[in-house]
Design a binder for these strands. Structure first.
Lengths: 214, 214
DNA sequence: TCCAGGCTGGACTAAACGTCCAGAGGTCGA
DNA sequence: TCGACCTCTGGACGTTTAGTCCAGCCTGGA
């Protein structure tokens, strides 16, 4: 991006670059033009948006000098499921006229992953003496699913198809489906219909069978 | 802090407040005056420094417009041992004259703690939940039946009705019948027909249900 | 011999398993 | 905005496994 193409960009670029640098690869910094409602510049872009693309900032009131000029942090959702924390600031020139809008989008995923591990680590605190046999096999299902969710930092509802396949592979390996009534329980735990469960299982078994023969 | 006391503060305050808000309690945002080398304003102060205090920024070259205008991230150490990641940006007005210096100090302690937990967590290679369901549960059946046979010194074919009831009680307690296809296997092992097996089981369950209520 | 109790195969119902499909919703590129 | 495409879903359906039931068969004891 050409930081000298617009006086506003020249003015604000150092601050934007500084934030982008500080927050490493996990934050996107965007400078918007409130008049044309288009993007002036982007640092660390997280999507394919670039200068000139529409801003989609309609909700911010940039005209009233007495209005709020810092918004957020509020939550945004990216198409791939990543959750962002966003803040916006209305940047004014010496006449108090809004000259630009600064947005910082921080990817919370790595933080959530760390937090999930931390809380999971702290919570149990009961080193439960491993029972010789699992009385309640459904607990084992919960355990396997929970471990996966903690690993990838996404709640069950937002697992991708691939995630679910991976979880099923683990459950399959644990012979969970050798016990009666397991399928409906697993489907419920995975927040998926029984049909889908069997569909995923078929896919999984087909591909693992292919692995065998190759 | 009075955000209107200085035109530079008025100009930059929204951006500073936005950063301070986004990074929660772990980041301090400081706006310095490069001319007097004093602090103009602080958001989320991590020490007792305030406006008017000396900046101690001597090393930054703010006079040469062609010089680098973003510094860091570099490491700082607080008196109490906390480690900070810091970035600085030289903010220029429309004449390219340095009007302020922005510093963001991020406390790395919580991140390092999380990282330490993560690496410690990854190291021991999670003691994979042992196969509580043996790959071959029928082995367990053999084991339980064999143990009983050894106890009473009679081969399987010569077990009495009471013996079989006792064995079934143990198998039942081991949740053997919760696994699919268990009944025929047990019947075969006990040298008994499927019908008899279910008959014995019914008898067993009836009497144990009676025990419950008595 | 006859009887009583237990075992057996087989018939049958119930429940769980697994498959299939049409429709609803969501995504993405034109 | 539209349509092609993909995935999930609930429900229908056929199959397998789980349980029940029963008439007939053995066996041991009176």
């Amino acid at each position: 991006m050409d930081e000298n193409s617009d006086p506003r960009v020249r003015t604000w670029a150092p601050a934007c670059r500084a934030i982008a640098l500080l927050l490493g690869p996990y934050a996107e910094v965007v400078l918007h033009d409130p008049v044309t409602d288009r993007i002036l510049a982007v640092w660390n872009p997280m999507t394919s948006r670039g200068p000139g693309d529409p801003s989609l900032l309609g909700e911010l009131d940039t005209l009233d000098p007495t209005a709020q000029d810092v918004f957020g942090p509020y939550e945004k959702l990216l198409a791939d499921g990543r959750r962002l924390s966003s803040v916006s600031a209305v940047l004014r020139d010496e006449d108090d006229k809004a000259s630009a809008v600064l947005c910082v989008n921080l990817d919370r995923t790595p933080l959530e992953q760390a937090a999930a591990v931390l809380s999971a680590f702290g919570a149990p605190s009961a080193p439960r003496p491993e029972p010789l046999f699992e009385q309640d096999w459904s607990e084992r299902v919960q355990h396997i699913v929970g471990a996966y969710v903690r690993e990838c930092g996404r709640p069950v509802e937002r697992l991708t198809r691939q995630d679910r396949l991976a979880v099923l592979a683990r459950l399959e390996e644990a012979k969970v489906f050798a016990v009666r009534r397991a399928a409906p329980v697993v489907a419920g735990t995975l927040r998926v219909s029984r049909s889908t469960l069997y569909g995923l299982l078929a896919e999984l078994r087909a591909s693992s069978a292919k692995d065998q023969t190759s």
